[in-house]
Simulated assay, not measured.
Amino acid sequence: MTWRTTAFGGVVVLVTAGMTAYALSAIAENDRRTSTATAATTTTLAQVEKGPRIVFRHTGRDAEYGHVGAVALADPGGPRALTDLSCDRVYAQDRSVSCLRTERGVVSRYRATDLAISPPGQAWREVDETDLPGLPSRTRLSPDGRLVSTTVFVNGDSYLASGFSTRTAVRRVGGASYGDLERFKLVVDGRRVAPVDRNIWGITFADDGRTFYATVATGGRTYLARGDLAERSLTTVADHVECPSLSPDGTRIAFKEADESGTRWTPAVLDLATGRRTVLTGEARSIDDQIEWLDNDTVLYGLARQGEPVSDVWALDTSTTATPRVLVPEASSPAVLR
């Protein structure tokens, strides 16, 4: 489990370092915040919600850092609407928003908030709030907005000498939970197993209300597993896959592929019917994110600027020779609402 502990621990260190760097810079620049405007002009949420859009976490070095924003899909680098909702991680579908956040204090608390997207011009409505057992990492909603998944980092598992593990759960938005996915029946390479060191993260949902895909890690290996909520089961279908994301047409999985150290990731695509993998070598940087699909031929991911607390959302075609480009500046955690 050394590779996994190193990878998760590295992510947590990077997240913490980024938050610390921002806090220090914010104090130093407090008197100049009003002049450090975002790279894009602003508009109203009602205007953006009139059509397809991208919802994201704003990362501009200003007073709205960490707030949820939205831009028109037709003009992703153009005017953005910024909300009062602040999140560490966000995801959205046409009817719902999932927000994971940290409430800092003497003892920090972690929460997941489900919100309903109201008609354009009206505020999003909170429908549920749930305590989380650890540091927010990933969240996804099903295509119909009725199911939500959360992944957090935790520590203290008995099989760990040090470092972090994960907890992943699926809930009905505003309703009951299916519980910790580590309790689901697990089938690896055709054989039912019950390892104590299993970790599950990076949920992506199909559109049938029961099927999902996830990363399962055990015994020093990572697998892509197909989950069934009705059967409460996870069955591996491929290996060496992390943070899957199902394409809009349901035929491919975008994911991050780790190197031997488990600390550097390259975006890749897996064809579910043939098992053929395409590594997107046009992106030379390490991508530690759960990829989002812009359309059936393009993927999105957040990437921090070197030496800055600011990140941008990048777009990359799924051909091997494509060149990445900034799609939404000063943003992370993208969700495409078509």
Rank of each mutant, 00 (worst) to 15 (best):
D157E: 12
T168A: 15
T44K: 07
G174F: 00
I200S: 04
L272E: 00
A17K: 11
G156V: 10
E260L: 11
I287M: 05
D84T: 15
A194Y: 13
A39H: 09
A335K: 07
A112S: 08
R305T: 04
A206V: 07
S25R: 13
Q47M: 04
C87M: 00
L135A: 05
V15F: 12
V12L: 09
D62R: 06
V12A: 10
Y159P: 11
A7S: 12
V11S: 13
L300R: 10
T168H: 13
E64C: 07
T34V: 13
R111Y: 14
T278F: 12
I291Q: 08
D189I: 13
I117G: 01
D144Y: 09
F205M: 05
T218I: 01
R95C: 09
V15Q: 15
R101L: 11
L224G: 03
C99G: 03
A17D: 15
L141G: 06
G69M: 01
T20G: 02
T321C: 01
E129T: 15
A214L: 04
M1T: 12
L229E: 10
V154T: 14
V193K: 06
C87E: 05
R277C: 11
D88R: 10
R140W: 14
R138F: 15
G66W: 10
D288I: 08
A23P: 03
G69I: 00
P248S: 02
R226W: 14
T41P: 12
R232F: 09
A273F: 10
T278G: 02
D297P: 03
W314A: 07
R167Q: 14
R232G: 11
G190A: 10
R89P: 05
F56K: 04
L115Q: 06
V241M: 01
L246H: 08
A74H: 07
V170T: 00
R95V: 13
V170C: 04
D88M: 00
K185H: 14
T204P: 00
T83K: 01
S35H: 00
A7H: 05
T166D: 02
V313S: 03
L24S: 12
P267T: 09
A284Y: 12
D271P: 00
V48C: 09
T298N: 03
H67G: 05
Q93T: 13
A26W: 11
L337A: 06
T2D: 11
C87R: 03
Y178E: 05
D228W: 08
C243N: 15
R232D: 11
G78R: 00
G307D: 10
G105D: 04
Y91V: 15
D207Y: 01
D271E: 03
S319D: 13
R198A: 11
R305H: 11
N155W: 09
A258K: 05
T236P: 00
F8R: 06
T41N: 07
V279H: 08
L147S: 08
L45Y: 05
T211K: 03
V12G: 06
G121Y: 02
R167I: 14
P244E: 02
V187I: 15
L327Y: 12
L141Y: 02
V279I: 13
S162E: 14
Y178V: 00
D317Y: 09
G220V: 10
T42R: 14
A28Q: 15
L73R: 15
L181T: 03
A63D: 11
D31P: 02
A169K: 12
L303A: 07
T236V: 05
H67T: 06
T251W: 10
T281G: 13
F205D: 08
Y22Q: 12
L246Y: 03
T274N: 03
D189N: 15
Y301M: 02
V279P: 04
